[in-house]
């Protein structure tokens, strides 16, 4: 009897549960899409039972926030990249050539 219940549970889980690969994909996918009920439920159940994927989902959220900050920091001229003097004069030289050719 117990064995049968165990077997049925295994069959049910393999049919309806998803593994970490699918769950982590859905974590990414849901950022821009509305999940269907089945996918939503499967992800919910997976996150409930898998601490690694819970951490993953949390870190992806943090990473998105950090990438937003990274983008902002670079769009306000605070990014620390500068053209080297050498590159600057090379580009100026190329542009001058065009300017004087006209």
């Amino acid at each position: 009897m117990m064995r049968k219940i165990g077997h049925n549970m295994m069959v049910f889980m393999s049919k309806h549960m998803i593994a970490c690969d699918e769950a982590s994909f859905l974590v990414s996918y849901r950022s821009e899409h509305r999940l269907g009920f089945k996918q939503w439920w499967q992800l919910k159940m997976h996150l409930l039972t898998c601490h690694l994927c819970r951490k993953y989902a949390h870190q992806i959220k943090e990473m998105n926030l950090s990438v937003d900050k990274y983008r902002e920091s670079c769009s306000h001229d605070t990014c620390s990249h500068h053209l080297s003097d050498e590159a600057s004069s090379k580009i100026q030289h190329a542009l001058d050539r065009e300017l004087h050719a006209k």
């Binding site: 998803i18 593994a19 951490k55 993953y56 870190q59 943090e62």
Partner: peptide, 19 residues
């Protein structure tokens, strides 16, 4: 039997990546 689950060391370790 654990097909599709994280490989050892490839899944997340720490909880937070926030500075």
């Amino acid at each position: 039997p654990f097909k599709g689950h994280w490989l050892e060391g490839k899944g997340p370790h720490s909880h937070s990546l926030m500075p």
